[in-house]
Computed example of a mutant assay.
Amino acid sequence: MSHTEVDELLGKLRRRGGVLYVFGPKTGPQLVAHVFQWPTCADVVILRGADDATAYRTPTLADTDVFRPKVVS
Rank of each mutant, 00 (worst) to 15 (best):
M1T: 13
A53S: 07
V35H: 06
D51P: 06
T64Y: 03
L13V: 07
A33Y: 06
P39D: 11
L47W: 11
L9D: 00
R57G: 10
K26L: 13
G28H: 02
S73I: 10
V19K: 08
K26H: 08
P39N: 14
L9A: 13
L61T: 01
L20F: 07
V19P: 04
D51G: 09
T27V: 12
V6G: 04
A55F: 02
D63H: 09
V19E: 11
V22I: 14
F36Q: 13
R68S: 05
F36S: 14
P25F: 13
D65K: 01
H3T: 04
P59A: 02
T64Q: 01
P59Y: 00
W38R: 14
V35N: 07
S73A: 13
Y56F: 10
V6W: 12
R15H: 00
K26D: 15
L47P: 07
G17I: 07
G18F: 15
P59Q: 00
L20E: 09
R16L: 14
F67D: 05
A50Y: 10
C41L: 02
A53E: 06
P29N: 07
V71W: 02
V44F: 11
V71C: 09
S2L: 09
V22H: 05
T54H: 04
R68F: 05
D43L: 11
D65I: 00
P25H: 12
A50D: 10
K70F: 06
V44S: 05
V66S: 08
V22F: 10
V45L: 15
L61C: 05
L13F: 14
T4G: 07
Y56N: 04
F36Y: 15
A33M: 13
T64F: 00
D43E: 11
E5G: 06
K12V: 14
I46R: 00
E5Y: 14
H3A: 10
V72K: 02
L31F: 15
E5T: 11
T54W: 10
Y56K: 10
D65Y: 02
V44G: 06
P25N: 11
G11H: 08
P59D: 00
Y21K: 00
T27A: 13
P39Y: 10
Y21C: 05
D7C: 04
D51C: 15
G18Q: 09
R14V: 12
F67K: 07
D51L: 11
V6N: 03
R14E: 14
R15P: 12
W38T: 07
R57W: 07
A62Y: 04
A53D: 01
